[in-house]
Design a protein around this nucleic acid. Sequence first.
DNA 1: TGAATATACTAGGACATCCAATGGTTGGGC
DNA 2: GCCCAACCATTGGATGTCCTAGTATATTCA
Lengths: 168, 168
Amino acid sequence: MGTPLSRDPIAEARRNWEEHGWADVAAPMAAITAIMRTQQILLARIESTLKPFGLTFARYELLALLSFTRKGSLPMNKASALLQVHPTSITNAVDRLERAGLVDRSPHPTDGRTTLIELTTAGRTLAKRSTAALNAEVFSAPGFDPGDVDHLIRILGAFRRNAGDFEE
Amino acid sequence: MGTPLSRDPIAEARRNWEEHGWADVAAPMAAITAIMRTQQILLARIESTLKPFGLTFARYELLALLSFTRKGSLPMNKASALLQVHPTSITNAVDRLERAGLVDRSPHPTDGRTTLIELTTAGRTLAKRSTAALNAEVFSAPGFDPGDVDHLIRILGAFRRNAGDFEE
DNA sequence: TGAATATACTAGGACATCCAATGGTTGGGC
DNA sequence: GCCCAACCATTGGATGTCCTAGTATATTCA
């Protein structure tokens, strides 16, 4: 999106907060803004790696999830819950994956309300290849200090549990 | 989006990675996925707080940025650089803010190519009120352990500098 | 000075996400 | 056995982001 800035814009924002009398919330504001920006950078890298495969991150996530199930199939509402996105996003993703021949829709054998998503052979192959690409190009050199990775997992895990993502 | 899951889906994904022989990248994968999910949760909170003001996060960011400048005005390309989003996203946001009477567009006095975004009185007022709401409802109780906030700022700051966001 | 290049904004298209509303399907309570 | 609340997937509309041009203005340099 352009050349590097001479100063960290988030540190700048933090200073603005402190100067306006909001010093008590300046640090959390900076942390939250940093998460927003970090997500943006990581998403761009992932999308760039997936582009040659004709996949977006949303569609990749669904494909990968299916590839990890025993039968390569999953009810749509289950996918929605596990990926933690709205049912409409699943509908959208399945529409496109189906049109690309990577998954099929089939009726649930006993519950007439639910639809099963099934991985095709082409879908399973693409899941493998795109995962290998992500591992090689993104996850193997994420840009974090190795020691920081565990910190992040712990801090964000606590946050997500706190936010009601999961229990335990 | 539903009820809490019984197990952490990201820890689950990490196990899948390890079982498939990708143990060397399983931890970074988990960290990156956790950042994605955390951003999603935080964004939802922010949007929910801004909704009563008729603002989205993208429009709020622009409004807040303008409110911190001396004159309450900024060239569009400057806004694009500081917020680190595509120029077209700025065009889109200014279109809507202008329609809402919160900003005005005016020609740059010396450079005929650039357009200045100017905060209106209504825009300045709304920036103040919506910032107060965010401080009260989101930033004052972010859901992180207080000690973790500084960790996050440091880890993500290093990552962003590494990614070329800024220098120094 | 005049052509080539660089910069700034906008227009249109693709994709993802959320929300609200709709139409089937199930299953528990009476 | 029947009815209605709960559940499931889809559709349509609004918003945001990025990409690919396209138009206009500035700047550079031969």
